[in-house]
Amino acid sequence: MKLIQSRDNAFFKQLKRLAESGRERRKAGQTLLDGLHLVEAWETHRAPVEQLVVAESALAGGEIAAYVGQRDCTVLADSLMRELGIVETPSGLLAIVETPVPAASPDVHADAVLLDGVQDPGNLGSLIRTAAAAGVRQILLSPGCAAAWSPKVLRAGQGAHFVVNVHEELDLEHFMTVYCGVTVVTCLADSTSLFDVSLDGPLAWVFGAEGTGVRPALVEIAARRVRIPMPGAVESLNVGAAAAVCLFEMVRRRNVMPAEGQGAGIS
């Protein structure tokens, strides 16, 4: 194990660029996984991690020390791990991995979630996680969305990225016009209650940016416009909450039973 204590170290400088710059991540074709849960999820669904970075104090004991064991890794002084600034309280474990590329073009015959201009990393990661939990296997992001493979979005996704295809910088308008299922947009104007519309598949759900919602051009070409009934004294839901309501109403209608050993959970 190699211990790095200086911020002038070349490896640390590269690590910091990966943590801070989307351009650097695209150039290198790499991203960072933060935390043992995310690293283990990657190894479960993708491939063994080849480059591990661990905080010096994390080697003193606990689950990270047990996971690292005799594996080859780079050790960072705790101050340098904090300086990376991925999260306010570093987990103590990072992995450098190759950024996945979707295996094929989006499937116009399968369920999909389309995200229009979702810029908050936490919201985007939560939306990907919700879609994956509902059984949707493709997520399409418009230009203007947060970078799906940034460390903060990955952390919010909690490993969901690794079981779906994420397509970035997509022309959502074009996809909606060629989609062979039903496109559904959430909005208030000229819409029908979510509980009163057919949700037979395949469906492409369109959710919009925080505050502004779905662009009018996408609303116009959607086959169905739905709203979530809200008897309480509020006007709208966070996009992540709205997506969860819609997607799990779809799951309920289809009466999908979880696979053995799986089920509802909150974490």
Rank of each mutant, 00 (worst) to 15 (best):
V49P: 04
V49M: 11
V49G: 08
E50Y: 01
Q51H: 14
Q51M: 12
L52E: 01
L52Y: 02
L52S: 03
V54C: 09
A55N: 02
A55Y: 00
A55Q: 08
A55D: 03
A58C: 09
A60E: 15
G61Y: 12
G61L: 08
E63V: 07
E63F: 01
I64P: 03
A65T: 00
A66V: 12
Y67R: 05
V68P: 01
G69K: 02
Q70P: 00
Q70R: 10
D72N: 12
D72Y: 03
C73H: 05
C73K: 01
T74M: 10
V75C: 12
L76S: 04
A77M: 02
S79V: 15
L80N: 05
L80T: 02
R82L: 09
R82P: 00
L84P: 03
L84R: 06
I86L: 12
I86E: 06
E88Y: 13
P90V: 11
P90T: 13
S91W: 00
G92I: 03
L93G: 09
L93D: 08
L94T: 06
A95H: 01
A95W: 00
A95F: 00
A95M: 04
V97Y: 07
V97A: 11
E98C: 11
T99D: 14
T99Q: 15
V101C: 05
P102E: 14
P102R: 12
A103I: 11
S105T: 12
S105V: 07
P106G: 11
H109L: 09
A112T: 00
A112I: 00
A112W: 00
V113A: 13
D116M: 12
D116Y: 09
G117F: 04
G117Y: 07
G117H: 09
V118G: 09
Q119M: 10
D120V: 04
D120Q: 14
D120W: 06
P121Q: 05
G122F: 05
N123Y: 03
N123G: 06
N123A: 06
L124Y: 02
S126E: 11
L127R: 05
L127K: 05
I128Y: 05
R129W: 06
R129A: 02
